[in-house]
Design a protein around this nucleic acid. Structure first.
Lengths: 163, 163
DNA sequence: CTTGCTGCAAAAGTTTTGCACACGT
DNA sequence: ACGTGTGCAAAACTTTTGCAGCAAG
């Protein structure tokens, strides 16, 4: 995967895996929905992704584990995970949707290399202040904030000079 | 149009219209490309949009003026305008691309109502500092920054209570 | 048992591309 | 004249939906 996190969490995920599953079950029950094996598999695949991922990454991960879940089911489950507040869309551009695990995490910004596509996540605590200030000024009720910086990574710059 | 600007520019555009046209011509010439009537029309339509717009808005504007420019040409021209630094993509989500005029403008943030789709632009000077700090920390060369806040507008909140 | 779920294939919707012909420079 | 541009229709892609059979609660 092409994402670096500020606080590396190789398998720190294991720690929240069980609670997340519980959170998801609770959410589904509350909505009168069912907890199926496919949904569990998708959640597993999502947790296995470190950082930003897209629907296809989930599909690829599942296949690599020998599981086969229809793409429609993957899309449907990603939407539920979003509704449950477990993942959120990250707007970095491109034609496919990108997501990241957000459960219990603070807002994070993303630095994207326009040449290589590499994504670096960074913490930007000041975002919460900005969000609150702007929302107050306009009478909005905030739901999310995101910052994306597009630029050229050191590696890309290097390759560029070596053309 | 569904966009409010901080510094309202009803037709402040007139002031930069001529230079922008010149900027575009210069850009095209430098790239060995041609300045055609269709490209001029698309640029006009872009300038007529206040705030955030999408390809279809440009198409609609052109039609409303009695002009007929193929959609392929609109898309191709928008890309050139992007390359020329006249417009830039705004990542607010949804399946179609959104743009805004950026020529000579400072970075601006966007507040988007998730219920009505209304977009409010706001100035956030601190973004430049954040951008520079993060890029320096990671050795990136910055190309753009953007902040998007999703939330619920006062109007939407009102309608919601009146259900 | 009742309701929701899955997988497949078809549908949708935006953006891109191939082509034959037309037009700036 | 040469090299691009234009419009149209088809292609590409991601995401959504309809449906028939299947399964969780």
């Amino acid at each position: 995967m092409s994402t670096d996190g500020p606080a590396q969490m190789a398998d720190a995920t294991d720690g929240i895996m069980v609670p997340l599953c519980a959170v998801f079950r609770r959410f589904l029950k509350k909505q009168g929905l069912k907890f199926t094996p496919e949904r569990a598999l998708v959640l597993d695949a999502v947790l296995a992704q470190g950082g930003v991922f897209e629907a296809d990454d989930v599909d690829a991960h599942l296949r690599s584990q020998g599981h086969r879940v229809g793409k429609a089911t993957i899309y449907r489950t990603l939407r539920h995970l979003q509704d449950a507040g477990i993942i959120a869309e990250v707007l970095i551009g491109g034609k496919q949707a990108h997501y990241r695990l957000t459960f219990g995490q603070p807002p994070r910004g993303h630095l994207v290399c326009i040449e290589t596509g590499r994504i670096v996540e960074f913490d930007a605590p000041e975002l919460e202040r900005l969000r609150d200030r702007i929302c107050q000024e306009h009478g909005f009720e905030a739901v999310s904030v995101q910052v994306v910086i597009h630029g050229i990574s050191p590696e890309a710059r290097q390759e560029r000079s070596g053309d």
